[in-house]
Structures are given as structure tokens and as C-alpha cells.
């Protein structure tokens, strides 16, 4: 008798479960109203490098503007051959860079980052826009920079990628015959090329 009860209970339970299952599956079978669209996306990833300027942590004049960008301003301030020297500017009264001149120097940090590239290093070159007061500009040990943007002067050295940057000396050779209070403004264009 107990077995029959168990069997009937079991059948009842399975019947209810079956009904529930059927109800659930029917609810599930209700077709959702949908619409579809397809957007084909195309992109070509290119390797790239980026050059930015920062104030050099050692012996560098604080960049007036544009630190962290690729268009910065470095102001030597007022320089004299024999007078007071601005902070982080060095004055040399003689240099192989120019004759009858004195040279003001400071450091700048050049930061080059690479993306999607297997390059391990890069080369640097620089050129300067035509100086208007007979001044001569140099970066590192390059000597006088080329005034041709298409033929920039190679900068000697071994440079590394990364935010720690590469400190480079920027030198400005000023003719001693330059009139007092002459304002000089030159643009040095740097080109980094991944090796």
C-alpha cells in the first residue's frame, strides 16, 4: 500500500513537473521580435613614435610653456658674456661653435615614445629656422645646426624610448657684437626616427 502511495505521489509529482516544464518551455518558445544590423569595422594599425619636450631634471631651464607636448618654449632669459648667469644656464666665453661669440647652454629633456613598434631605439636630427641676428644654435655636440628642414643635422648620441627622457644640451652662440637688449627667437625642429 505504501509503495502504491509512493508511486502515485511520484507520478503526480512528475506530472506536475512535466506540466510546469511544458509551461516554461512554452513561455520560452515565444518568439522575440528582433531586428538586426551589421556594421563592418575596418582599421589599420600603424607603428608610431611621439616626441615631446620636458624640463631637464639637471641643469635645465624650466620650459616656459608646452612641457609634455611637442611644441615647447625654452627661454634662456637675459644672458651676458660676463654678467650674471640665469639659473641652469651656463656661459662659455669661447667655443668651437662660433668665433667672436659667447655661448649660453642649458639642458632640455626630449622624450620619445613608440607604440606598436619593435624598434629599440631612435635617431635624432634637428634644424633651426634662419637666425636673424647672427646667432648659432647647436644641440649636444652637433655643431651649428642646419637651417634646412629637409636636411637636418644629425644629433650624436644613443637615445632611448620612454618617459624618463633624454637630456640634451641646447647651445646658443651669440656674437659679441650683438647690440644690447637684442631679442633673439629661434625655432629648433627635432626629428626622431625609429631605428
Amino acid at each position: 500500500m505504501n509503495n502504491w502511495k509512493k508511486i502515485s505521489q511520484s507520478l503526480l509529482a512528475s506530472g506536475v513537473a512535466g506540466l510546469l516544464l511544458a509551461a516554461v518551455s512554452q513561455a520560452h518558445a515565444t518568439t522575440a521580435v528582433t531586428a538586426s544590423g551589421a556594421l563592418t569595422v575596418e582599421a589599420t594599425v600603424a607603428s608610431s613614435i611621439q616626441l615631446t619636450f620636458n624640463t631637464a631634471t639637471s641643469n635645465g631651464v624650466t620650459l616656459t610653456s608646452g612641457a609634455g607636448t611637442n611644441a615647447a618654449t625654452l627661454n634662456f632669459g637675459t644672458v651676458t658674456e660676463y654678467g650674471s648667469v640665469p639659473t641652469n644656464v651656463a656661459i662659455a666665453t669661447s667655443s668651437s661653435l662660433c668665433s667672436s661669440c659667447f655661448v649660453a647652454s642649458t639642458n632640455v629633456s626630449i622624450v620619445v615614445n613608440a607604440a606598436d613598434s619593435s624598434s629599440s631605439g631612435f635617431s635624432l636630427a634637428a634644424s633651426v629656422s634662419a637666425p636673424t641676428h647672427g646667432e648659432v644654435l647647436a644641440v649636444g655636440t652637433s655643431g651649428a645646426l642646419s637651417t634646412s628642414a629637409t636636411s637636418p643635422t644629425p644629433i650624436t648620441g644613443s637615445f632611448t624610448y620612454g618617459s624618463s627622457g633624454n637630456a640634451l644640451q641646447v647651445s646658443l652662440g651669440i656674437p659679441t657684437a650683438t647690440a644690447d637688449s637684442t631679442q633673439m627667437s629661434d625655432v629648433i625642429t627635432f626629428v626622431a626616427t625609429a631605428n
Partner: peptide, 11 residues
Amino acid sequence: ASLAFGNVSAY
């Protein structure tokens, strides 16, 4: 439709 990003790079 299609959408072309073109050349993309970090810099």
C-alpha cells in the same frame, strides 16, 4: 553599413 577608421596609431 561599414565604418573605416583608416590608419590608427598612438601618435
